[in-house]
Structures are given as structure tokens and as C-alpha cells.
Amino acid sequence: MVRDAYKYEKNNLLKTTLLVKSDEIIGFISLCTGTTKLTKQYRKGHKIFYAGIDEYPTVNVTHFAIDNRYQHTAMHYGHVIFNDTLKRIANGVVSVVGVTLIMVVEALEEARPFYEKGFSFQVHDSRNTNGKVNLAITIPELKIVVNG
């Protein structure tokens, strides 16, 4: 996963943020932009009504990992880097790009509670066939989560 993130970063296909402690990489998160289809139920539940639009602009979490030695510690490194990323998106990227509506992550089933309970993400698409869960949060909801 680290090699993939580095390869894409090097070619300007995504942006990676490293979490470093004492010159050691203990975690990272990679983002890119894209589009996604939203289920009718998700659009209705989040009041997303745009006639004739099938694909919605997104910020995608493409890679996110914390070294096993630093998971489940009192420092909560995963929450730290993810919350920092959300704040930068809510308070920076959106104001510059101006078109992003949704932030999405394709999560492993065992990571689902991290996103749902910790950051209010919800399932947005039931068509994932690779054993993962498609989760999303709207940018207005994201701003509430990170700014209170």
C-alpha cells in the first residue's frame, strides 16, 4: 500500500500526508478527487436534489493506514491524522475547489465503526463487490463534525 501511495504521489495523481514520529512513518493518508453515484435513499436522506445529475463530485480517501504498533494506543493516531485531514478538507480544499459535495472512503468491514462512530460516515452505495463498504459524508456534515 505504501509503494502504491508513493507511486501515485510521485506522479501527482493523489496527495499523501505522512504521520511521522521520531523519523519513523507511523501512518499515512492519501486523497484524490473523483465522482460517485449515490443511491436514491442516500440522496433523499441527505437532501441532495440535483435534477439530471448521475455522478457527484468527491474527495476520495484512497489509502489510509496506521502501523500496527501504533494502533489502539492512548494517542489514537488514526483519529489524529483522519481528523486533521477532515479539517483541511472542510476548511481549505472545498473553499478553493468549490465543487466538492461528498467525501468517500471504501472501508474494510472491520474498519467501518471507525468511520461511522468516530466521524459520522454512512453507507452510500451497496454495489461494492470487493468485500469493502462504500461510506460517505457530505461536506456540510463534515464541517459540523470537525468544527462543532
Results as ranks from 00 to 15, higher is better:
64 F>C: 06
96 V>C: 10
63 H>G: 05
68 N>K: 14
30 S>N: 05
21 K>C: 13
80 V>T: 15
127 R>M: 03
32 C>G: 08
88 R>H: 14
130 N>P: 01
41 Q>T: 13
49 F>Y: 06
105 V>W: 02
25 I>M: 13
34 G>E: 00
25 I>T: 13
8 Y>P: 00
145 V>M: 04
145 V>H: 06
14 L>K: 01
127 R>F: 05
63 H>W: 08
19 L>D: 07
72 H>W: 03
117 K>F: 07
71 Q>Y: 01
76 H>Q: 15
90 A>L: 07
123 V>E: 10
47 K>W: 01
26 I>A: 14
97 V>L: 09
2 V>E: 12
75 M>Q: 15
122 Q>E: 14
38 L>P: 05
111 A>H: 11
124 H>R: 04
127 R>W: 02
106 E>G: 00
51 A>H: 11
99 V>G: 14
115 Y>W: 11
39 T>Y: 03
67 D>L: 12
96 V>A: 13
99 V>M: 04
101 L>C: 00
145 V>W: 01
147 N>F: 03
83 N>A: 14
46 H>F: 01
137 I>Y: 02
22 S>E: 15
57 P>Q: 07
68 N>D: 14
100 T>W: 01
22 S>G: 11
74 A>E: 15
9 E>K: 04
69 R>D: 13
102 I>C: 01
119 F>C: 11
82 F>V: 03
91 N>D: 06
116 E>G: 04
138 T>K: 02
5 A>C: 07
56 Y>K: 06
48 I>E: 02
138 T>M: 01
41 Q>N: 10
84 D>S: 15
45 G>L: 06
147 N>Y: 02
61 V>E: 07
44 K>Q: 09
54 D>M: 06
140 P>M: 05
57 P>M: 09
91 N>I: 01
143 K>D: 03
49 F>W: 05
106 E>S: 10
6 Y>R: 10
69 R>F: 13
94 V>R: 02
83 N>R: 15
32 C>L: 10
68 N>R: 09
134 N>D: 08
